[in-house]
Write a protein that binds this DNA or RNA. Structure first.
Lengths: 216, 216, 216, 216
DNA sequence: GATGAATGAGGCTTCATTCAT
DNA sequence: CATGAATGAAGCCTCATTCAT
């Protein structure tokens, strides 16, 4: 499995930045809206372009084909999520397990939950085969960050840390998916976040090999 | 067959049971195979019929349209999974939390893991809007069974059970999805099952309000 | 609109073959007509299907794509031409150069000239890259047949036959193309045929190394 | 520049001659290159402009549409060929048939053969309906020049000279096309030229009505 | 019943041409 | 004037569904 993010799918051209950024944003936004309102099978290039307020031709100037558009949308979205998690991990290296775990879970859930509707829509799009590698690569990023984080905790050691990290990430990403597809209101989602954090904390406490304290 | 009434999509006819059962089975099997080999977008009615060894016309005798076929396949599959979980729950009512939890998790993971390729394929098909309700209904069945199970444990009480159950089911189903999409070999999946069980056990131990023992 | 002729109350003699043959013929005919009336660039699958009286879908059941259709049309046409020439060659092995030459030229020109409009149209289609190999292969067949024919003449020998044959075939096919694109009426074309025969006769007489007669 | 008036498609503007000539040349060159590398169907205005190093907009300043560009390219090319042949004819008026014939054939074949790749490419482009008239007009120029040449030979007379000329031109142009599409290396093409000259000489010797010599 | 050829709407993509900058 | 982004008609092809045999 490829581990690192694919740089791929640049827009075909890079015209005046301002305009093109706006256009690309509009297309991304339209993509999500159409996905939401019509479902993945009725997500057509024409509909996206129309919704974005540009012609198909224009859209094809930015994305060489539908697949590329799909990948670009997913890539940006997953990239943001992974960025948020990585930053949280970097910011909590060396902290106690419970703190680090909470930070990790919170970062992920918040990122996914910031705009539930979008997250929900993109889960559907992520089922397409041409995007599997992107999903896997993102999972790998999350996994790696978690491994690093868990390796840095002063109060516990995990063995094998890769496996423990896999459980944490699987459970968090998987459960969050269910939550996003199930709940819409802020409160419920916040509550989910706290609950999920508790679950991971519990699991990690259990899985930990307690590190000998310096004293005694 | 699932316990609860199926709301929709009966075959149009019910002739000689033996033959029609065989045909429907062949179609279901073909559906999954085509899904696996061609992906959800190239899953066409013609291809499924061809693979199943019947004509499209015949297939339309059993399923009024492609959507109905999709729903029937997903329904049967999810039904089996939910059946397995419900049975496990029924079989472990009144047992200690740890035992009950392990049984629940194992039942689910085993059901999903019995035929990984099929499970993996159907995750893709389940992204279609027309099966969302089915997925939700199944989730509800799992949730309900879990609530019942957790309410029956003699050694612990959960408050609110619904929420605790939600976490367990979310984590288990979500993480299993990740595992199914990530791992293929039996050993890894068995190991995943044990790990997941451990995670839930830990969470439930933590979440439990210890019940007063009979003595005192 | 469906093409199907009402079979009336006759014994169904012609099951599948008849219908598909008729359809393929109709498509070929339509192809040529559209080519004639719209030119190669406006030769679209839709237009051909429409003209043939079938739906695009039906056309795609017979030909997997436009290219395949193009090749099939050209292949059938060039095949007939090459067949005619080969037969003429076979039928004149061992005859004197002048006779053999005339037979060869006549056979080719007649084949190309039988239906000038079609020949003219197909010259346009033959410019497409995906058909070059077919054209070359046909040229090779003609060349080979000519080589055999010229090698069999009792009254002359050619050295190297391959080259002499190349000139004959190049001139005949090339000039015929010009004639077909230039003239339409039977008389002019017949006259062209005779003139071309004369030209080749003259060339071959000149190129020949006279064979020693048996006597004297 | 050709002798006879060009009927169509002047550039829209005629500004600083130097620059526009250079631009037009670049466009023509690009046209041929794109034709060669992408084939006639993928010969797009954008690609040509890009290859020529100008913007599409600029190209449309010189040629009102793609068709006009196509015609201009073909016109220039065919014009050069016809010019070469006409000049050869003018230069050999009154010479003996064999000499005149050789000059004619050589001039044509050399012109077509000077840059085989270009000639080959342009044969493809010439299949478009909108250049038929150009091709015919060029053929007419060649035919006329040949008629004049054959009418000037002191040692032979042809009857009807138009028809004889038609055969010669048809065979030469047609066979040359085959040669250009078949052979690439200089030697083979030179050999073809000599062979073709021989063929025409033979034909004309045969077709000639010998002119009474001055004596007797 | 069973069959599968036929249908045609609709999806993706290209490219000649225009026009605001 | 030159530029090249934007346009959208039109091309190719797929596939769910029907219906005559």
């Amino acid at each position: 499995m490829p581990v690192r993010p694919r740089p791929a799918l640049k827009p075909r051209k890079t015209p005046r930045q301002a305009r093109s950024t706006a256009t690309v944003d509009a297309i991304f936004e339209a993509f999500v809206q159409v996905l939401r309102s019509h479902g993945p099978r009725r997500l057509t290039t024409t509909r996206v372009a129309e919704r974005a307020g540009v012609s198909v031709g224009t859209m094809y100037q930015y994305f060489p084909n539908k697949q590329a558009l799909l990948r670009a949308v997913i890539e940006r979205y997953l990239g943001e999520v992974a960025d948020a998690v990585e930053e949280a991990c970097r910011g909590h290296m060396g902290r106690p397990v419970a703190v680090a775990s909470d930070a990790l879970v919170s970062a992920y859930v918040l990122a996914k939950t910031k705009d539930v509707e979008t997250s929900r829509a993109l889960y559907l799009a992520a089922a397409e085969v041409e995007v599997t590698e992107l999903v896997n690569a993102t999972f790998a990023r999350l996994h790696e960050a978690t491994v690093r984080l868990l390796s840095s905790t002063p109060d516990a050691r995990f063995e094998p840390v890769e496996e423990v990290a896999f459980f944490v990430i699987s459970a968090v990403t998987g459960a969050t998916r269910v939550a996003v597809e199930t709940k819409s209101d802020r409160d419920a989602l916040d509550q989910f976040r706290l609950g999920m954090a508790a679950m991971c904390r519990a699991f990690l406490r259990d899985a930990a090999i307690v590190r000998a304290g310096p004293a005694d």
